[in-house]
Amino acid sequence: MDALVEISGLTKRYGDTLAVDGVDLTVLPGEVYGFLGPNGAGKTTTLRILTGLIAPTSGDVRVLGGKPGQADVLGRTGSMIESPAFYPYLSGLDNLRLLAEYAGVSRRRIDEVLELVDLADRAQDRFSTYSLGMKQRLGVAAALLKDPELVILDEPTNGLDPVGMRDMRRLIRELGTGGRTVVLSSHLLGEVQQICDRVGIINSGRMVAEHNVEELRGEQELVVRADPKDRAQAILTRFGNVHQYDDTLRVTVDPARAAEVNSVLVGAGIAVSELHMTERALEDIFFELTTEEKADVG
């Protein structure tokens, strides 16, 4: 399957600062790709390069088979980079009308995207009167105006309240299931875990991982809270790898053996107060990877 976005060895330097350092990244057709990283990691710089707003210092970047910023590529790409930026004195509708003029899009499509982001009722109001959530939704509407093959959204849930975040996640999931390819950057790990098929994790300008979400989260673990912990840990090593996490012990073991684990511990006179299966959250992996990276750099 040909990749829609292919980046290899991408570097962007501002004076002495290396914002992006040899990033490799591949986005496949039809997937929702999560681009994760802490603030200042290089996510937005990479996305700006993808949309042709800034030129890379070195490296090879292909978007939809062409170079970023080419008219044909831009015509098939919808994007919202950082905060949505529109003309404050114009209404939401007029802002979309002028973008439609630039992009050569029909008026009918404006109505469709306004309905899609649930903004039709307020379309005649000035952009400056919109709430943050409405501004974000108008940004997404603008990104979808060209009915693009590739949608690039940079922190689309920034500043939204919980209801707004839920609606935005639902919208992005719908985009993904509709056959579009979505590149979504975020520092909200739960959000990416819920929405994305694959993730790339960037830290200090370098890609530290790129996997399917499930691959990245790895095997399930059995969480055990027991007393005394030392003796419990010694016994649990018979079942699999054991590590401590907060006040609990975590064992990599087949979920079907949970009852057996409990029986052995109780039989050895150990009090078990908690026993359940868990999956590693993306958050744990993210912190492991970004902390390692910092340690390596340090």
């Binding site: 042709g52 008219a71 831009l74 930026a85 060209k146």
Partner: peptide, 22 residues
């Protein structure tokens, strides 16, 4: 200058036309 202060330059430059055209 308004295109820079409002950040709308990035919005219009990511539509179809080239920078020179805009």
């Amino acid at each position: 200058g308004g295109e820079y202060t409002w950040g709308t330059l990035k919005t219009i430059l990511t539509q179809r036309p080239r920078r020179g055209t805009i």
